[in-house]
Write a protein that binds this DNA or RNA. Sequence first.
RNA 1: GCGGGCGUGAUGGAAUUGGUAGACAUACCGGACUUAAAAUUCGGAAGCUUUGGCUGUGCGGGUUCGAGUCCCGCCGCCCGCACCA
Length: 895
Amino acid sequence: MTLGGFHGEGRPDKSALFGIFHMAVERYNPRDTEPRWQKAWDEARLFETRNDDPRPKYYVLEMFPYPSGRIHMGHVRNYTMGDVIARWRRAMGYNVLHPMGWDAFGLPAENAARDNKVNPRNWTYANIETMKGQLKTMGLSLDWARELATCDPAYYRHQQKMFLDFWKSDLVERKSAKVNWDPVDMTVLANEQVIDGRGWRSGAPVEQRDLTQWFFKITSMSEQLLDGLETLERWPDKVRTMQQNWIGKSTGLAFEFGLKGAPEGFDSLPVFTTRADTMWGPTFAAIAADHPLAKALAQDNPEIAAFTAKCRAIGTSAAAIETAEKLGYDTGLKVTHPADPDFELPLWIANFVLMDYGTGAIIGCPAHDQRDLDFARKYGLPVVDVFKPLDSDASVGDEAFTPAKTEKVRYVHWHGEPGTEITCQEAMDRTLALYEEKGWGQGRVQYRLRDWLISRQRYWGCPIPVIHCDDCGAVPVPADQLPVELPMDVTFDKPGNPLDHHPTWKHTSCPNCGKDARRDTDTMDTFVDSSWYYARFTDPWNETEPTTLDYVDGKNGWLPVNQYIGGIEHAILHLLYSRFFARAMKATGHLNTVEEPFEGLFTQGMVVHETYKVPGEGFITPAEIRIDDIDGTRSASRLSDGATVEIGPIEKMSKSKKNVVDPDDIIATYGADTARWFMLSDSPPERDVIWSEAGVEGAHRFVQRLWRLVAEAAPSIAGVAAYPAKDGPLSATSKAAHKTLKAVGEDLGRLQFNKAVARIYELTNLLSRDLSALDEKAGAETRAALREGVEFLVAMIAPMMPHLAEACWQEIGGTGLAAEQAWPAFDPALVVDDELVLPVQINGKKRGELSVPADAPPEEIEAAALALDAVRVALEGKQPKKVIVVPKRIVNVVI
RNA sequence: GCGGGCGUGAUGGAAUUGGUAGACAUACCGGACUUAAAAUUCGGAAGCUUUGGCUGUGCGGGUUCGAGUCCCGCCGCCCGCACCA
């Protein structure tokens, strides 16, 4: 299972050397040819895109990488898919924008700086250099002239400007809030970056802290972000659903309880409920442990203080929440119902009420809410049925009655006539109308989405361009002082924020009053950087503005991105932030019209690989082992000493499992085309692909086979004009070629690369039979038809295996570069069959076949089917009950 | 718990959206070539079978002339969200 071996040197194999079969054709040697073609593309500047090109535009973008050091197989898969689309659209006549850049800010650079005493900037740029070199070996058709790095002041100066513009437009806010603190990364995190109560990078349980921080007011666009999802027809439903859930819209009734005996300043208690129809069934009210009223009560009641402390101690982790029992503390206070001041309820503090959602206070209606019921049963609170099923008079036991809102029920305890049978929705609507009319409450829309916390107590990020003055407060850095650049002389030897530790950087004067003042030492969340890079690519040369309105969107502009490709892990984070940013940029004049930045989104699956373990020692890499397969039983051993190796489960490639395959090794051994072809074959692109040595070998065999096929045929078809065979023995081949061309185009349009690959295999199998029969005696028509077939094949592989396509194109004497050739047009007349083979069924089971002209009338087909031997035998001279003829599909004789 | 997706040979997966199930590939087996292997090339292969067929797309029903595909009920796996009032 070594990656080196016999392929590497590209020496011709023996059969070719001795000319056993056809003329001697040397093995295709990608290591030699691929760099040559890459150079040819560069010199021809084929992939540099002009903004003023009049052809229709197509913008293909893959999520740009974090410069971690080296590219991995996930990048190879992602960028191969994007490149296929880019090259194919180019061949279709579009002016294609296909740029690449670097998501270059982030914590790993700081960790590297701390551990290896290097500057984060130098570390980052060194990684960019390496990875750019790796991407170049993949043969991607990228416009490197537009390359950008988010850590470049030339980029982040515009981000600082937009931050200030957003602030002016009331889209930014500095506020004190309970925030997520990651104790390992020593910074705050946005809600979206906390997964199961842990930091998304560090995995450490986050703590809640009250801090004053900068927020983007993404909640001001909740409704637009939700509505916009409807328009994203070329997004996966899964991602749309996830965003919908994240925004979490709910509609209901907002009202206020009256408060009796509460501390000074607490006259009423605002509450939100989605079940207005249950307003006559509550038996208690409850507030969160962090509710201001609970805090006030805790101040002079040690028991309450102890209880609220206990609630907080349970923590926020998923496991803790799942096992947590409902806990409550009766405050002794009473609340009064908005519709009837004499209707009093006890006020509890309960651990299952969240301060983050709604108002942090609930109305407890046990009969129709499971949580409330559990709580009521535990503390012996009454349970009052508001409505019952139509067919039963039973009261609620230990299971709350929570029918769908559209279900009709019988209301027994509400403001209307008892016994009314209506749907819950109807009852809610009526209650809401009544409450609004009487002034007891109002309809309200509630969202789960929180504002986007962007402050990070880190060094390697975009500085927040704000100066804090004791007299003037937070003051924007004046435009002529932008960018606020990061200092280079920083140390990472003590924990915390290096910008804060820097001896001089933060000290400045107030732009307003001139007094001594301090710079904001926080930097922006790196998701801010990636929220607008797609717009910057449209004119990265603009020094004065983030975008150039003529080019960014609108009539002659690029946005929205026509096809965006990346991992599902950004379903909420990056994609939601970017959608917000586009709207904010439009609101501040940095975009003309576009609100949705990504018209088409594709989320590709992961690259996974078997894991290997030496018992007692741990994981080892695929390169260190060999696999033996004896009668279908696979076993593995270590190359160095023959030790037994356990073959473990297939998992996402990761350093810790050591199941990674280095793209450099693969490209050095097999070439970029093999790696690209393998990534596109077999697995549907949205699913995980299992990287296997056998699979790569198979892909490589096809590269060699196709090359041999074309090279051997070249002398016979070079200089021949391509023309399809309309009749004769080759007409079937020509038809297959045109059909394949049509189908592959359709597959590529839907990003179904695996299907396109399978069709190309089929055509190759067909052509190889015809080509091996080709000799000097072949007629002009045969040569023309085969020439066309080969040309189609080259055109179809060109987006996927661009180097091999160039080599083949050159071999058959094509002019110019394959990368510049137009996608061929199929002949509509050749993709329809004039003779069809119809399956003939008897009672739904296939019993024969029938060859008929495509335009044969159904009666004729029926007659022919009935004349078949198999049918005649089955009929035994009787009449069929029914004969179904589905044109171009099937005949079914029912007996 | 809620929401979404999936279940097809040894394996990855096709199946024109209700019309020949298993395309194509991987692995495997056999022939040719070779001293031998690799490479190449040709061929085989869902299962059972009394050779006429029968069974077969997680399981059980249903609709239909016809179901991998649609409907109902289960089972299993994956993903997302979750004490969201």
